[in-house]
């Protein structure tokens, strides 16, 4: 009994030592913040860690505000943010001796979609907003067939919804009659099966089963999103404390390389080049 206890104890100590040794050998990058940027951070980290097995990356969500707060408190190396840093946050950072540096990592463009049989091809921001507020309820009011509009929206916690709320609804409330789908894929599925429906999805999820709408005459494309002509697009950021050095610097370089941007594209966002 005593003997086996000793063996067990030795094993535990050995494991603990081994653990701490690898922890010393590897560098750790902590990433926190926006859930919109989270899939990019995750996919890029996986690819990066495959190439650099010594580096350990821990990622968590929590929202843009929390990410920036963590950066100011120096409890994270990189803060993901779906918006630019606010004046107040910069002030707070300077007071606490941090210097947040923005890096634009991708463009997030959201495209409104309808059933392929719908003859409506173009809506203004105003019209989209009224449709989502439940004030325009029939397609004929916007030049379409005499059919009721079924509004398909995303769960209010998603990043896609956040952009829609900011760029189209301007903080007005979505009609409570809107259907809720839990993912971009589910919205495509719902709209492609329903000639009454309108939905919105991340640019990367567009396929032939649905028809993308122009917004105020502008077609959603990589070019119009990059130039800012397309209304529902926004840059996504990662903030570092000061100009990045060491592992953080090499991670950012990887993310902004052609290979990193390829991953960004795969995740449904618009790459920077």
């Amino acid at each position: 009994m005593k003997r086996s206890m000793n063996i067990l104890l030795t094993c535990i100590i050995c494991l603990a030592l081994a653990g701490s040794v690898t922890a010393i050998a590897g560098e750790t990058i902590v990433i926190k913040g926006s859930t919109t940027v989270l899939p990019i951070a995750q996919a890029v980290s996986e690819a990066y860690m495959k190439i650099n097995p010594g580096v350990n990356i821990s990622i968590s969500g929590g929202g843009s505000g929390n990410g920036i707060k963590a950066l100011i408190d120096k409890s994270t190396d990189i803060a993901n943010s779906s918006r630019f840093i606010k004046d107040k946050e910069v002030q707070m950072a300077v007071e606490k001796g941090s210097y947040p540096v923005p890096h634009r990592v991708a463009i997030d463009a959201i495209v409104p979609i309808v059933h392929p049989s719908n003859n409506v091809g173009n809506l203004t921001v105003e019209q989209l907003s009224l449709i989502y507020q439940g004030k325009i309820t029939n397609w004929k009011e916007v030049g379409g067939p005499d059919l009721q509009i079924v509004v398909v929206s995303r769960d209010t916690s998603s990043g896609t919804y956040e952009v829609w709320e900011e760029k189209i609804l301007h903080k007005a409330k979505v009609t409570p009659k809107a259907q809720l789908q839990a993912s971009n894929g589910a919205v495509v599925q719902a709209v492609s099966n329903n000639k009454y429906a309108i939905g919105y999805i991340g640019f990367g999820y567009l396929n032939d089963s649905v028809k993308p709408l122009k917004i105020a005459g502008v077609v959603a494309s990589v070019e119009t999103a990059l130039s800012g002509e397309f209304a529902v697009a926004r840059p996504l950021f990662m903030f570092t404390n000061g100009w990045p050095t060491g592992a953080v610097s090499s991670f950012m370089a990887f993310l902004l390389s052609r290979e990193g941007q390829e991953i960004v594209k795969k995740e449904g966002f618009i790459p920077l080049f």
């Binding site: 859930t35 929202g63 769960d155 916690s157 998603s158 009659k177 259907q179 809720l180």
Partner: peptide, 20 residues
């Protein structure tokens, strides 16, 4: 023929993204 959102559906759809 209207859509509804029963309680379990709301919990399941939103819990994943609700900040801790």
């Amino acid at each position: 023929f209207d859509s509804v959102r029963p309680m379990p559906a709301s919990i399941a759809a939103e819990m994943g993204e609700a900040p801790f």
